[in-house]
Design a protein around this nucleic acid. Structure first.
Lengths: 190, 190
DNA sequence: CAAAATTATGAATAAATATTCATAATTCTA
DNA sequence: TAGAATTATGAATATTTATTCATAATTTTG
């Protein structure tokens, strides 16, 4: 794909994300997306067959990009350090990509989602489960049902990221990261 | 309001919630709501001026009903008991009313929401804050920023309820309630 | 540089969906 | 129980929004 085409696609995708943040998926109009992207409505149809394809392409791209990148490089570290690094990265990503999360959560139960996009991302959870198992075997982590531990970790980090975005204007301090992780670690450590 | 009218309204609201669970707010069509409620499309317009009013009325009702009812009766109990009771009730309500949560979350950033409905429910958070403050003053709760504690509690309970609904078919055992609360309490207690 | 190919435009058209309304059924009232 | 009032119906109409397409601008090719 040419660079100019990539750029144009990003322009469209960014506009769609911004709009979703304002009016949700139910408020997305092709004309509004075009306007937000500063192009003509017809131009959208050069890049996508229709609205459904546009939204699915965006969702597919976001899902691809949301895979945790660092995982391999940290697996030799102590469990609590691994978890801290993950916590930090997850929190930063969630804060930075708030609009992406909003879009994905709404898209999943919209009428636009295609079957091929329905297989929900389970990768991150699986990875967490793996770390938790290791931690349990080393007696570092409470012997509690993984589902409960995972709910605490993911629920907390997500909710905290929303709080940072909405009530702290997106500003995430090191102190906040450390304070929240410390609470999380205290909850699950043995 | 007559009983038959109330009943009809509930019929419409229930249908709307069920549909939202299937196709999201973006997929809500007046004709589909009517069909789901087993009435004619035109009948909807006897009860509501238009779609926007219908959705706002539903949101308003849900928000009113989501206020925690037990609050007054437990304020004399020990902090951890108060929190346990709240945890249990919140979890049960979230599991039972999963569709309501989905609707409310989507509605908040839809183009339908009216200004008067925009003042988001902050009641529950305020109540939690109050308990936490009391707990801190009694040295029972960690001296950590309230926002962080609240994120943990609310994020955890919400995420866990979603897990129960999606992966455990909505079955919430006493054991799950106790296990999850125990984790939560361990995280925040001093 | 000229012709061909690609990309862009936005008004015109098609399609989807909200809303109305003439008519019918049902429920009140006296 | 007859007539008035209310509630229900769904096809017809209005409105909104997606999509197309004739035309123009831009970029590529040779």
């Amino acid at each position: 794909m040419s660079d100019s085409k990539k750029e144009r696609l990003n322009q469209i995708f960014d506009a769609t994300l911004r709009l979703t943040g304002k009016v949700g998926i139910s408020g997305l109009k092709m004309s509004a997306i075009a306007k937000e992207a500063s192009i003509a409505t017809g131009t959208l149809y050069i890049y996508f067959k229709n609205k459904e394809e546009l939204l699915n392409a965006l969702y597919f791209k976001l899902q691809k990009e949301s895979a945790p990148a660092i995982i391999n490089e940290i697996s030799h570290l102590a469990i609590n350090i691994q978890l801290y690094k993950m916590w930090k990265i997850a929190l930063e990503q969630l804060v930075d990509n708030n609009l992406r999360i909003v879009f994905m959560e709404q898209f999943i139960i919209s009428p636009y989602i295609s079957n091929s996009n329905k297989k929900i991302d389970i990768g991150f959870k699986n990875y967490l489960k793996q770390i938790l198992e290791q931690g349990k075997s080393e007696n570092l982590i409470k012997d509690v049902n993984n589902d409960v531990l995972i709910s605490l970790i993911i629920g907390f980090v997500r909710n905290f990221s929303v709080h940072i975005v909405n009530d702290r204007n997106g500003y995430l301090s090191e102190k906040s990261i450390d304070e929240s992780f410390s609470l999380c670690w205290n909850a699950i450590k043995n």
